[in-house]
Simulated assay, not measured.
Amino acid sequence: MTAPLLLKGFEVEMFTGRPDGTVVGCADDVARALPGFMLEPDRRNLEYATPPAAEYRQQLGQLLEPRHTLRAWLRQRDLTLLPGSCLSLGDSRSFERSDPTNSYHSLIERTYGTRVVTASVHLNFGIADPERLMAACRLMRCEGALLLALSACSPFLDGRVTGAHSQRWRQFPITPPRIPLFLHHGHYIQWVEEQLRLGAMHNVRHLWCSVRPNGRCRPYEIDRVEVRICDLLDDPLELLAVAGFCELRLLQLLADPERHDPLWASTMDADALAALADRNDQAASRQSLAARLHHWRDGHVLTAAQWLRQSLNDVQGMAESLDLEGWLQPLHSILRNGNRSMRWLRSHGEGESIRAIVRREATALECRERELHQHLCQGTPVTACFAPTTSLATP
């Protein structure tokens, strides 16, 4: 390796339900019974997080182990983990509170309703220097549409096709609705303090956007960039592939900020970049890899898939030097075969029902986890070159 890898960790949200795809909430029961699982406001989805670690194989184990424990608990109740980032088979009309006594949850239900009842994954990368961290947030904000295009897996809601590849991002309330591209750490602090005074944010956590700084005492003490735009990447190897791509882009930025920080390397100013990034995110939510995006460098138009291929080619040398090339392989498969939403919509167009798709994919995910867990336990090499044998690989 030519440079140290960043510390990274993941926050994973997932829906629970019956093997036939029916959503059944139990997050409050899980949180009481099993350590490490956290409540979302609606009990139909739950969350767990992995501890910070730099190595990808270690993170693979940390992604799998909580699910291994959780699945044993769920199996006793004839429940499983469901794929997708929205309530594919409903019901989005009603809120199912996980903690009726939580006043912040009450505010969320009253203000946003079931728009927030989604499942996703947040990627955290440790960067200790606040100004370098703000540059990382700028780059990830301007390239967030690419990550959404790779991860899109919410084309269904309430048993119907929504017309979007990421219904989750279409419905999730960006809060506050207009978020600038932060020029430096001081700008971020000043802006957050103003939003709290105005009531646009109810606390420092109430910044719901594609990418944000995070840390022990935000906005003052920050030490990681939190990428929040991705739909649920439930296959751990696909998640690690997206994380590897993000990390390589961040390492490029840290090595050469004048070339990779949009604030300095773009022909546009900060306001124009923020607006461009938001438009790109919405375009990716509608058409994912086929979306026509505007590049942050000079605004030229290309599809998300074209942009990703160019970027993967650009990071290839660094990936090889850091032994990350194998972990990126699922991205090439996604670019060839389509992301989860695209594959599901193809299957639905060929006559497969939404319930059948959810049921099939839930079974495939459990098989996939068992397969990967076995390889880890046996100590055999597990990289992204290890091709999936389940339906997660192809439609």
Rank of each mutant, 00 (worst) to 15 (best):
P4K: 03
L5G: 12
L6C: 02
G9W: 04
V12A: 04
T16C: 13
T22A: 09
V24C: 10
C26P: 02
R32N: 05
L34N: 09
M38Y: 15
E40V: 06
R43S: 11
R43H: 10
N45K: 04
N45A: 06
P51S: 09
P52M: 08
Y56C: 00
R57C: 03
T69G: 11
Q76R: 15
T80V: 05
L81M: 13
L82M: 08
C86F: 09
C86K: 02
L87T: 01
S94I: 11
S94D: 13
R97T: 15
S106V: 06
I108P: 05
T111C: 10
T114C: 13
S120K: 08
G126L: 02
P130F: 04
M134D: 05
A135N: 05
C137V: 13
L147F: 14
S151V: 05
D158V: 00
G163L: 05
I174Q: 13
P177H: 03
P180T: 04
L183Q: 14
H185T: 08
H185V: 01
Y188V: 10
Q190P: 00
W191Q: 15
W191F: 06
E194K: 12
L196Q: 05
R197M: 08
A200F: 07
V204Y: 12
H206N: 10
C209R: 10
S210M: 06
V211W: 11
V211A: 12
N214K: 14
C217Q: 13
P219Y: 07
P219N: 09
L233F: 06
L237T: 08
L237R: 15
E238Q: 15
E238D: 15
L240E: 03
A243C: 02
F245G: 01
C246G: 07
C246Y: 11
R249A: 08
Q252C: 11
Q252I: 00
L254Y: 05
D256C: 10
D256R: 12
E258A: 13
W264K: 07
A265I: 07
L273D: 08
A274H: 03
A275P: 01
D281C: 12
A291K: 02
H294D: 12
D298Y: 02
D314T: 11
V315A: 07
V315R: 08
M318H: 09
S321N: 05
L322I: 02
D323S: 11
D323V: 00
L324F: 07
E325K: 09
L328W: 09
Q329M: 13
Q329P: 00
S333H: 14
I334V: 15
L335H: 02
R336N: 07
S341V: 00
R343D: 06
R346E: 14
S353W: 05
E361S: 10
A362Y: 01
L365M: 07
E369G: 00
E369R: 04
E369S: 00
H375K: 12
Q378R: 11
P381I: 05
C385M: 09
S391G: 15
P395C: 06
